[in-house]
Design a protein around this nucleic acid. Sequence first.
DNA 1: ATAATTCTGTTGCCATAGCAACCGATTTTG
DNA 2: CAAAATCGGTTGCTATGGCAACAGAATTAT
Lengths: 210, 210
Amino acid sequence: MTELTNLALFAGMSPAAIEEQMTVLRGQKTSVPKGSVLIREGERTERCGILLSGHLQGQQIDEDGGLSVITTLSAGMMFGEILIFSDRPAPVTLTAVTDCRVLWLGPVDLSRADSRLIQNLLNIIGKEYWALHQKIRYCSIVSLRKRILAYLSDREKSPNEPFSVPFDRNGMASYLNADRSALSRELSRMKRDGILDYHKNRFRLTEKKL
Amino acid sequence: MTELTNLALFAGMSPAAIEEQMTVLRGQKTSVPKGSVLIREGERTERCGILLSGHLQGQQIDEDGGLSVITTLSAGMMFGEILIFSDRPAPVTLTAVTDCRVLWLGPVDLSRADSRLIQNLLNIIGKEYWALHQKIRYCSIVSLRKRILAYLSDREKSPNEPFSVPFDRNGMASYLNADRSALSRELSRMKRDGILDYHKNRFRLTEKKL
DNA sequence: ATAATTCTGTTGCCATAGCAACCGATTTTG
DNA sequence: CAAAATCGGTTGCTATGGCAACAGAATTAT
């Protein structure tokens, strides 16, 4: 239970209050094997959840059967929380890319919810909304090189420090709306041009962006 | 005051309750001339608002000074409501593309907010979130023709019926992440191919999409 | 009414990046 | 451990669509 106190949803709440909300929200921990689908695009859901461990991806499938990665979720992040208060169906399919543990919540009765919890919820929604806007910003950059650079710069914690991205090349290409081979090619070029260095999913930006 | 009862934020609330919340939320109607900036990208804001009349656009400016249209808002829609509960700065600049009337709200004290109001708020947020996902879906379609078609199909209310888009060509191109002339060219071709017909910002989809 | 500005369509040029195909490296599975 | 599958890089081909420039239409301003 102690791990719950670290969750953003319960930030600033006493263990007792958390305990109570866990009952109200019908919290339920489950194990989710790699490859499982937690939420399916186009379907309504009344539950949301928090990823306790593992790695999720939000994906869309286009009419040609192509898979497009929209989001990645790492431990501690929440999902579906916007959905449950709206009449809209899920915009993405949520898939476990590794084995996961998930805390399911809901259905949620707003009138019985702690006001601090709602505040936390809105905060979380704000962050997610922001992340979507980031993705849109990347999308709208025409030049692949600039797009890659924009993304990597945002991931960089401090200048010149190596950092990792939550994708393999395929996922990264998909997230950045690019072809995998085109991404590989451009990364090679950027390495050649001394802009960055990388190995697998670890990157390091070297000098000024051009 | 009566126009307030039609707003999604106050849905299902009594005139008296609305009146009260208007005080709590410090509602304030203002006129906003065309071209004004309501929220500036990168800045924090403590107020949100509802567009009573006119037309707004959410825009991002990329590093090359290019303008990218992210959203359009028409009368009745809310803006900034996600922002005020999060510590993130505004992801877009909100600009009045026509003269507008705006109802400003905030700062908001969650603990004094009507629970129905919060429910409405979450609902509105859900819709906006969904709209963003739509835009992302369009972005991730590589073929310009298919991208246009996806967008127009979503706007079409019923088959074969004409409908309008809330953009001029420039805005539409920007929203669809395309070059204006490329969009014009592709629209011409699609008209030639009998896929659609249009005049200015009114469109009509004719036969099956290919 | 006339001028000025904005909007839309058109066209030529051509670089970017998508696609396919291949290969070696790495990881997973049995 | 071997076999299979996934992953990442490379390369050639080429269509798409970005860019620039122009012109006529439409809208707005004076």
